[in-house]
Simulated scan of single mutants.
Amino acid sequence: MELTQATVSDLLAQLGPWDGYMYLPGDLDPHDLTDRLSGRYGAPRTLVLDGFTDPTLGESRGSALLQPFGERAVTIRAWAWGDRWVGTGTARDGEDIVRPVLVVAQREMPEPLAVAADQDVDWMERLIRITGWTHPARRPDVDWAEMESRLGTALPRDYTRMVETFGEGAFDGFLTLHQEPWTWRREDGLLSWAGTEHKDLYCWRAEGDDPDRWPVVVRSFDGEELSFDCQAAEFVCRILVDPYHPYTMARFFDTHWFMNYGEAD
């Protein structure tokens, strides 16, 4: 079976928008299918490897993908993509033959929590919940002391947690998280921590001794600036879920995820 991105799209369309699975021809290379899905959805999570299921697997980590196969799953890797789980790998069919498979399942998205004015919120935990993030920390060993020494400033803690947790990638496949602040607007007092494909820069106004109190500044592609009195993680949460935010992504995406560009688990 010749595999192209168009072929993959056709197969996914055959499965429909909700729960579905199919066994694929034996001459299809399951690694090729995994690579092509990774090109669309980022790094996958391994649910089953050589017949052994991840012991931490649960509903929030894609267990619905294994229901059609039971104990017949051999290797299954999965992606969280909006309100859908997508999985591929190999499983034994009714004649006990190991064959490539493609499977999809509905993904339950947690509702963002309302926040009272006097509520102390861990915005990183809320961001993890909004995106349905289930992977282990992608970059837990970043040498922040070396980076901060090189930059000449400490960095906001919520930003360092974002990089450690999510690693290299983009929220909703659109808002790219810089792995190190960009300094090319430093003469304007700005450090950029993220950007979009529309060439908007999401920055801090790096003034004062406490980085955790730096406001977020959006520098748009046409040079206009708009400031927000909040931290980076709170800003991302709000643009993901608030359809009335000036830089909302909620009007374009009903559910939210982080596309990781790194290696698979």
Rank of each mutant, 00 (worst) to 15 (best):
R161V: 07
D158M: 01
E168Q: 15
G167F: 05
E146V: 00
I128G: 01
H135W: 14
L127D: 03
T134Y: 15
I128A: 03
F166I: 04
T131Y: 12
L151K: 08
P140Y: 00
Y159M: 01
T165W: 04
R161Y: 07
D143F: 03
G167Q: 04
L151F: 08
L155Q: 12
G152M: 05
R138M: 13
D143A: 02
A170N: 10
R139H: 10
E168M: 13
S149Q: 00
P140C: 02
R129Q: 13
A145K: 12
A154F: 12
G152H: 02
E146N: 03
A170L: 08
R129F: 00
W133N: 04
I128Y: 02
S149T: 03
R139F: 07
R157I: 12
T153K: 04
D141A: 12
A170S: 15
R150M: 03
R139G: 05
I130D: 08
G132M: 06
S149I: 00
W133A: 02
D172I: 08
R150Q: 06
M147Q: 14
A154E: 15
D172L: 08
T131N: 11
A170W: 08
L127S: 04
T131E: 07
V163C: 10
L155E: 09
G169V: 06
M162N: 12
A137T: 11
D172K: 09
D143Q: 06
D143L: 03
L155D: 05
A170Y: 09
R138Y: 03
L127Y: 06
T165K: 07
Y159D: 00
R129V: 01
I128N: 01
M162E: 14
T134F: 15
E146Q: 07
I128V: 14
G132V: 06
R150N: 01
E148F: 03
D158V: 02
G169K: 14
T165N: 01
G152L: 03
S149M: 00
M147Y: 10
R139Q: 14
M162D: 10
P156W: 14
T131D: 09
P140S: 01
E146G: 01
T131C: 14
P140W: 01
V163I: 12
W133M: 07
D141N: 10
E146R: 08
V163K: 09
D143R: 06
H135F: 14
L127W: 04
A145Y: 07
T165Q: 09
A145V: 13
W133S: 04
R150V: 00
P156D: 09
E148A: 02
G169L: 10
T131W: 07
T165V: 12
S149G: 00
A137Y: 13
D172H: 11
R161L: 11
T165R: 13
R139C: 12
R161T: 11
L127I: 01
E146Y: 05
E164Q: 10
E146F: 06
R157N: 11
V163E: 10
R150T: 05
E146W: 04
E148H: 05
D141R: 11
T131V: 08
M147C: 05
G169T: 09
R161M: 11
L127P: 00
T131K: 11
I128F: 02
Y159V: 00
G169R: 14
G132A: 08
S149E: 05
A145L: 07
H135L: 12
V163D: 10
V142A: 09
S149H: 05
E148L: 03
T131M: 10
L155P: 02
R161G: 09
T153P: 06
P156M: 13
L127T: 03
R138I: 04
G132I: 04
F171Q: 13
I128Q: 06
